[in-house]
Simulated assay, not measured.
Amino acid sequence: MSNTGFTIGYNCILRDQSLSLATKGLYLVVSSYIGMPEWKLTKNTLNKICGTAYAVEKAWKELLAAGYLKHYTARAASGAFIHRYELMQEPSASAPHAFVTDADFVSGDCRIVLSGESKRDFTQIPNSILRSKRIPLAVKGLFGVVAHLINIPNFSLNPAGVRAFCMERIKRFSSIWRQLKLTGLLKQHRYPTGEENSFEYQYELLDQPDSEAPYLVNHHADGSVSSERTISD
């Protein structure tokens, strides 16, 4: 299965401060597979993709409770139970589980339900990141949030500004922010402000992990440049 291309990540969920970053990551992962007839949405499948059953289970329950995921059960002609899912662009107050008489979907066993004009409010996320088994769910969620925010005119990217769109407390958020750097997806540039021991930062968000380029580049007042290849440096 190809990891090329992009997935549409709806900004409504990326901005939702009531959802954890891991849950936002799971939403994006499921979105990246919707419409593929050969793909079946099960927690076992997600565990293999995401590499952690605990994180998937917790995020799955959170999506259901928040109204972003609907689970329908029906009986096939053979009498066996079949399962279908809807991923909501905006949260729904209806029950997360329901038995229905008709669960035929056009393609696959999961579909996304769009809502009005807000369907145009989205951010493109690379499938290569969403389908990577090496990148944790929370980091995928944070990547999506940052990718959305950097497209907002005049938004100054910094950890505190990003955390305003996340439910995580500072210690947990800082850990995920650090992981985003460790994956090679976020690069920092540090510039002196002209005041003693004062700096400003600029960031690069990459669409492919790069472990070779330095994670931090220091731009000195005299015009010279130094770098740190890893956070441990």
Results as ranks from 00 to 15, higher is better:
Tyr33Cys: 12
His220Ser: 03
Ala95Pro: 00
Pro192Asn: 06
Gly141Val: 06
Arg229Cys: 01
Tyr72Ile: 11
Arg169Val: 05
Phe81Gln: 08
Ala98Met: 10
Gln89Gly: 11
Thr23His: 07
Asp121Met: 10
Ile231Val: 12
Gln124Glu: 14
Lys171Gly: 00
Thr23Ile: 02
Glu200Asn: 14
Tyr191Thr: 09
Ile176Trp: 01
Val100Tyr: 00
Val29Leu: 11
Leu21Asn: 10
Met88Pro: 05
Pro159Arg: 13
Arg163Thr: 03
Ala22Cys: 09
Ala66Leu: 07
Cys166Arg: 10
Asn154His: 13
Val217Ser: 09
Ser224Tyr: 02
Ile49Arg: 07
Gly184Met: 02
Gly35Asp: 09
Ile112Val: 14
Pro209Asp: 10
Pro192Tyr: 04
Val225Asn: 05
Asp109Trp: 04
Leu21Glu: 06
Ala65Val: 04
Gly5Thr: 08
Leu14Thr: 07
Ser32Lys: 01
Phe122Ala: 13
Met36Cys: 09
Asp233Met: 03
Leu130Tyr: 03
Thr73Leu: 12
Ser115Thr: 13
Met88Tyr: 02
Val106Asp: 12
Tyr203Leu: 08
Asp210Phe: 02
Val217Ile: 15
Ser78His: 07
Ile82Asp: 01
Gly79Met: 02
Met36Trp: 05
Phe81Ser: 11
Lys181Tyr: 04
Ile125Ser: 07
Ser18Asp: 07
Glu86Met: 12
Leu87Lys: 07
Ser232Tyr: 08
Pro159Asp: 11
His148Arg: 13
Leu114Pro: 01
Ser2Ile: 03
Cys166His: 05
Leu142Val: 05
Asp233Gly: 11
Ile176Ser: 08
Arg178Pro: 01
Asn3Lys: 10
Asp210Val: 08
Asp104Cys: 09
Gln208His: 12
Pro96Lys: 07
Ala147Lys: 13
Cys166Ala: 14
His219Asn: 13
Leu19Arg: 01
Thr193Met: 05
Arg75Phe: 07
Phe81Tyr: 09
Cys110Lys: 01
Asn218Ile: 03
Leu157Val: 14
Thr101Glu: 09
Val217Leu: 03
Tyr191Glu: 02
Ile231Asn: 02
Tyr215Cys: 14
Glu168Tyr: 05
Phe199Gln: 12
Trp60Val: 02
Glu57Tyr: 03
Ala138Glu: 11
Leu157Ala: 10
Lys171Pro: 00
Ala147His: 01
Gln17Phe: 01
Val29Gly: 04
Ser128Lys: 15
Leu216Asp: 04
Gln202Ile: 03
Thr230Glu: 06
Ile170Asp: 15
Thr183Trp: 00
Arg163His: 06
His97Met: 04
Ser107His: 06
Leu21Ile: 02
Asp104Gly: 01
Ile135His: 05
Tyr85Ser: 03
Lys40Gln: 14
Gly161Asn: 15
Leu46Asp: 06
Thr193Arg: 04
Phe165Glu: 07
Lys171Cys: 01
Val139Cys: 01
Lys61Leu: 07
Pro91Arg: 01
Leu142Gly: 04
Val225Leu: 11
Asn44Trp: 07
Ser156Thr: 15
Asp104Ala: 11
Leu186Asp: 06
Ala76Thr: 15
Leu46Ala: 07
Ser156Leu: 13
Asn127Asp: 08
Thr52Asn: 15
Ala77Pro: 00
Ala80Met: 05
His219Lys: 10
Gly79His: 04
Val162Ile: 15
Thr123Met: 03
Ile125Asp: 04
Phe143Pro: 02
Gly116Ile: 02
Ser31Arg: 12
Tyr54Arg: 15
